[in-house]
Every structure is written in structure tokens, then in C-alpha cells.
């Protein structure tokens, strides 16, 4: 037997309960301050008369290129989205590259070019960066870190932290969950499936701008990345000590994601997205927000999937297609294909 004490396992990076434990017991413990304590997608910083949103994200993905995007487009969109869901307008990005010796320049060029294109489309600038090269075998081809700064209007304060959430609020999603995770899994060629699946990787700011102009009562937004929408909803339930009820029949479905999940025994609610946002709004504004979302490219399939309840605080409950009820728990270990 090897010395197995106290090591990081892959579960510490999956967005679930292990990672949450690591963050709270280690990072938050030592970095303790009022901004980091919020655990929002962006930290909100008061500067002179206004507010800045500030965020960072690192990107490691295998394979680097997948249907619907690559690590570069992901690195830009991911950080733009973390700013946008805080209610901020993204302004500037940084980009840091850790590159493995021997990585093809043509591939790096393709990746950097797609970063530039995404940034330009979003009207933001990549204004600073860093490059490190490590010996062959010391990293998996390429890792990218981006950080971003956005401007936040006074009236959108608190959207990232969820402090405005109250029972009765409606929960909205902009489209079917699971496309990114399943497209990447497919790109890894682990299964002999042929699908037309594409990652949903997208800059959500244009959609979010529409949401914020449709309603002054957006109480919370978060992009549902690693750990899927189940993880976001659990974070909300836990942090705001409120109940959540969602209805399986109302959740938009991508037929190919559904088929792959049925075959493998996966739950699409736990699968990663790169272009999905959970929006929690006042019930009076919900229909208008959905209508506004439907008029955008990334919100065409928007739907109200559930609501905040005062029952079962801290728990997310799903009403199943067959009319039963079950708990949607926090992700523990990564989802694994069924054995039989």
C-alpha cells in the first residue's frame, strides 16, 4: 500500500461537495475577507463612486479542440460569463498561458486567434498576459488562465450573491443542459457514438443585457458550468437556506444529450455547460424575462423550470416526469457510466 494520506484527488476539482469543502476549509479559511466570503462568480469591489466586478478562471480541457469551440474560446467566454452573471458589463481581460514543450505553434495560433475573435465580438480587450513553458510531460499540452474586469451599475448590486432571492421567485434556464459536457465526452472518442452535438460555449453577455433590461427584479444569475445546473441550484439552496422545486417536464431537452445520458446512465442536470445561465426572478417578471430571452440566439429555448419555496430549506427537489419526487443532491464523485 502506498502513502495515501491527505492528497488531492480528481474529485477535488469536479465542482461538487469535495471541491466545496476544499474551498471553504482551505482557501476561504486563509484568504478570509468580505469579498471572497460571498463566493460569487465575481468579486464586487467599490472603486471611487462605482463598482467593479473582478473574476478569474483557469481552463484545462481534453481535448483542446472540440465541436463548438476550443480551450481559447472557452477561456474567454467563461470569464466573460462570470462577469456578466454578476450583472456587470465585461471590459478587460488578462490571459496567462502554461504551455508544454513541443506543443504545435499552429495549434496555439488557432487557439489565440479564436480568443481574439471572441473578445472582439464581445467588445472587450485582452490587455495583459503571461507565458510560461514547462518541460514535456509537466503539463497536459496547454493550460490557460484568464481574469476579467467589468463595470457594475449600482442597481445590479447583489445579483451575483443571491441575497435578494425569496420564496415564490421563478427559476429560468436559457436552454437544454448538458451539451458541452457531452460534446467534449464525445470528442474524447470514449464511446462509439456518432452525434451532431456541439458545445454550447458562448458569450452570454448579450443575453444577460436583454434580461436586465426586461426586469429590474432579477434576483440572481449564475452560469451553470462544472457540476451542471444541479450544482448551481444546490449552492443557491444552501447559501440562501431556501427550498427549490423544479419540474422535469419543463426543463428543455436536447434529444442527443438525452439519448447519450440514457445509454450511459448519466443525469444531464449534473453535466457541464459553457453557455447556460440560471436566472432567478420575481414571479411577476418571469414571463417577460423568458420572452426577452427567446429573442436572443443563446436564449431561444428559455423556459421557467421551477421556483424557490419556503418548504424544505436547503434542498432541491425534482418533480419527475412520472409524477414522483426526488432530491437533487450535491454532486459527490464524478458521474460514471453504468456498469451494466
Amino acid at each position: 500500500m502506498r502513502d495515501t494520506k491527505e492528497r488531492i484527488s480528481m474529485n477535488h476539482g469536479n465542482g461538487g461537495i469535495y471541491m466545496n469543502k476544499l474551498i471553504t476549509s482551505l482557501f476561504l479559511h486563509f484568504f478570509e475577507n468580505e469579498q471572497i466570503r460571498e463566493q460569487a462568480d465575481s468579486a464586487i469591489l467599490r472603486v471611487n463612486e462605482g463598482h467593479l466586478a473582478y473574476t478569474t478562471d483557469s481552463f484545462v480541457i481534453d481535448p483542446l479542440f472540440f465541436p463548438g469551440g476550443n480551450i481559447g474560446s472557452l477561456a474567454v467566454c467563461g470569464t466573460l460569463n462570470d462577469l456578466a452573471v454578476s450583472g456587470a458589463k465585461p471590459q478587460y481581460l488578462s490571459a496567462g498561458f502554461i504551455i508544454e514543450e513541443g506543443f504545435k505553434l499552429a495549434h496555439l495560433t488557432r487557439i489565440v486567434k479564436s480568443m481574439a475573435i471572441e473578445a472582439e465580438k464581445a467588445g472587450v480587450r485582452i490587455v495583459t498576459g503571461d507565458t510560461k513553458v514547462v518541460n514535456a510531460g509537466k503539463c497536459d499540452k496547454l493550460f490557460i488562465n484568464t481574469s476579467g474586469i467589468g463595470l457594475l451599475e449600482e442597481r445590479h448590486l447583489g445579483i451575483g450573491s443571491g441575497q435578494k432571492i425569496k420564496p415564490g421567485d421563478k427559476i429560468i434556464i436559457n436552454g437544454p443542459p448538458g451539451e458541452h459536457g457531452m460534446a467534449v465526452m464525445q470528442a474524447r472518442k470514449l464511446f462509439a457514438f456518432k452525434t451532431n452535438l456541439k458545445s454550447d460555449c458562448a458569450n452570454l453577455y448579450p443575453l444577460i443585457r436583454k434580461i436586465l433590461s426586461a426586469s429590474d427584479h432579477v434576483h440572481f444569475m449564475r452560469d451553470a458550468t462544472r457540476g451542471g445546473i444541479a450544482t448551481v441550484l444546490n449552492e443557491v439552496a444552501r447559501k440562501c437556506n431556501t427550498g427549490i422545486e423544479i419540474d422535469e417536464m419543463q426543463i428543455p431537452v436536447n434529444e442527443e444529450v438525452k439519448i447519450m445520458c440514457e445509454i450511459l446512465g448519466f443525469d444531464p442536470l449534473y453535466i457541464a455547460n459553457e453557455g447556460k445561465v440560471i436566472v432567478i426572478v420575481d414571479p411577476d417578471d418571469a414571463i417577460e424575462v423568458v420572452a426577452a430571452m427567446k429573442r436572443t440566439e443563446t436564449g431561444r429555448d428559455a423556459a421557467i423550470i421551477g421556483e424557490i419555496t419556503s418548504d424544505h430549506p436547503g434542498r432541491v427537489v425534482l418533480i419527475t416526469r412520472s409524477g414522483g419526487k426526488r432530491i437533487i443532491d450535491e454532486l459527490i464523485g464524478d458521474q460514471l457510466p453504468r456498469i451494466c
Binding site: M1, R2, D3, T4, R7, I8, S9, N11
Partner: peptide, 13 residues
């Protein structure tokens, strides 16, 4: 009895 495959993996197996 004393370990798991997951722990062994993190430790180098």
C-alpha cells in the same frame, strides 16, 4: 482493508 483504489491512484498507482 486499509486503502482504496482512488487513494492509491492519487498516491501514484
Amino acid at each position: 482493508s486499509l486503502s482504496s483504489l482512488e487513494k492509491e491512484k492519487a498516491a501514484g498507482s
